[in-house]
Structure formats: C-alpha cells, structure tokens
C-alpha cells in the first residue's frame, strides 16, 4: 500500500526534464574560432563543428540556474583525506629504448620534431593544409 502511494506520488511530482533550448544562441566571433583552433590544435572542420560548440555552450549555460553562493568548488571526491605519496626516489626506469621504439621518428635517444617556433598558418592556408592531410 505504501509503495503504491509512493509511486502515485512520484507520478504527480515528475517534472519535464531540463530544456536545452535557450532563447539566445551563443555566437562565436571569427577571431575566437581562430584562437580556439590554435589552442586546441584541432580544427572545427565544418560549419557543423562550430554549431556543435554553440550548442555545447548553450547547454552549459543551464548551470547558471543553480545558486552556488558561498559554495566552495570541488576538485575531487577524495578531498577529505591525505592521499598516498611514495618516497621521492626512482624505483624503475632504464626503459628509454623501449619507449623510444614507440615513436615514429627518433635519432639516437632523441624524439625528432619538425622546425619549431613557427606559428600555425592563417585560417585559409590551414584549411587547405588539413584538407590534403586526410588519411
């Protein structure tokens, strides 16, 4: 009997789920698109990629209906205890060769990269560079 009442109660209380439709769409200006692509080192690829970010931002904006006045941010659920720390001494290693084998390009015991200190090319050039790099 109790259970039945409980379920009837739940039926009455159930509310519509969170809406993901917010009245104003997020707008990403072109210079921010460029900045994000440089920071993330991935590209939006298509217009859908950009729309996907706009939707992700609108979705995240629902956080702001929650009142968090006076609430401390939480980094980890283990915040209430001291975690294990090992002694600051090397206990393994000597596997440089094994690790270097995983790299596509090495010389002696160095990883090799192309010339550095060259910023990514501008948007148009970048797009054509990526277009030609499809697997």
């Amino acid at each position: 009997e109790f259970i039945r009442k409980l379920w009837e109660g739940l039926l009455v209380q159930s509310k519509p789920p969170l809406t993901s439709h917010f009245p104003f769409p997020a707008q990403i200006p072109p210079d921010l698109v460029d900045k994000l692509e440089r920071l993330a080192l991935v590209d939006f690829r298509t217009k859908q990629g950009l729309e996907c970010l706009e939707k992700a931002i609108r979705f995240a904006d629902q956080l702001h209906v929650v009142d968090t006045t006076g609430i401390e941010p939480m980094d980890s659920v283990l915040e209430d205890r001291a975690l294990y720390l090992r002694e600051d001494t090397a206990v393994d290693g000597g596997c440089a060769e094994e690790l270097l084998k995983l790299s596509r390009k090495t010389v002696e015991e160095y990883f090799v990269v192309p010339p550095g200190n060259i910023p990514l090319p501008k948007k148009e050039e970048r797009s054509s560079m990526l277009k030609h790099s499809e697997l």
């Binding site: 080192l41 690829r45 990269v113």
Partner: peptide, 21 residues
C-alpha cells in the same frame, strides 16, 4: 613544415568529430 603544423594535422587525422568537438 613545422612542429605546430605537425601537431594540428596529426590531431586532425587521428581524432573523430566527437573527440574534436
């Protein structure tokens, strides 16, 4: 052509749309 260009193209080729997004 450059380290940054290698990073960007590697990640462009290696990740799917979900990961990139």
């Amino acid at each position: 052509s450059s380290t940054e260009a290698m990073y960007a193209t590697t990640r462009h080729e290696g990740f799917n749309d979900v990961v990139r997004g």
